[in-house]
Amino acid sequence: MPQVSGINTAIIPSENIGKVDNSGIELTLGYNKQFDKNTSIFVSGNFTHAKSKIVDIDEASGTPEWQRQTGRPLNTYLLYNEMGIMRTTDDFTKYPHPTNTPRLGDLIYQDYTNDGKITADDKVRSKYGNIPQITYGLNLGGNYKNVDLSVLFSGQAQVSQYVLPESGTIGNFYSSWADNRWSPSNPNGSYPRVDERASNSVNGGAYSNTFWLNDASFIRLKNVELGYTIESPLLARAKLSNLRFFASAFNLFTITKVKDYDPEGNSGSGQFYPQQRIINLGLNLKF
């Protein structure tokens, strides 16, 4: 809606517009086996592949193809492609930069349109959004005599999450950034120079870029529980019908490329509470 028309806030009622196609498959496979009185196992896995595709969304008709949301999944990002760090002053002439005052330690952005300038047209839409296209789980376990075990893995793939924590005069830096930042004394640092505020830095929020976009795939040992049930005539005397010791743990480990934060978080500023690792020891009593 052109603003010149004056038709904006509260003149047009809110309305649901847009169209998204969703398609995918969902599989669940399970297997249980009782070998004998003392031994049993179970395995069950699930797998979901769900793909969304935007068919119609309120998008300016002149949007370049590489930036369009139409035809792509939901929740994708529009970012500059990051191509490294300016380490020598030669880089200032070699690569176009968005401002007139490039500095060593700045990120290099891809000139997608090849016009010798970094402009908003050089932003490119990401392949994946922060909704995973693949999610899966694996649940297995069994009993042997008095011992019981159950294990649950879960994971996701084909998913991206952008996280740029507010760092500087407001907010702290993740140690991986602070320790590995480019600086005159650390010219080979793998992170860009630190700035007054990440959210409006030329290397951060002012030119949101793929440096801060992570492949948020992971596989995680979500839950594991090991138990031991005591059977003894003494129990009956103590008027107990059952006594079981167990140890359980949540989030024992996670395999992921994401550093510093929880790959299940979905806040672009990193403002989410990470999932905790919990270890329980306990016993069940039944009377």
Binding site: Q3, V4, S5, G6, N8, T9, I11, P98, T99, N100, T101, T119, A120, V202, A206
Partner: peptide, 21 residues
């Protein structure tokens, strides 16, 4: 900083829409 651009006018971005409304 001189980084104002058509896609990001910062706090100067209010006048166009507000005035025509």
């Amino acid at each position: 900083r001189g980084q104002i651009a058509p896609e990001n006018l910062g706090n100067a971005g209010a006048f166009w829409g507000r005035s025509y409304r």
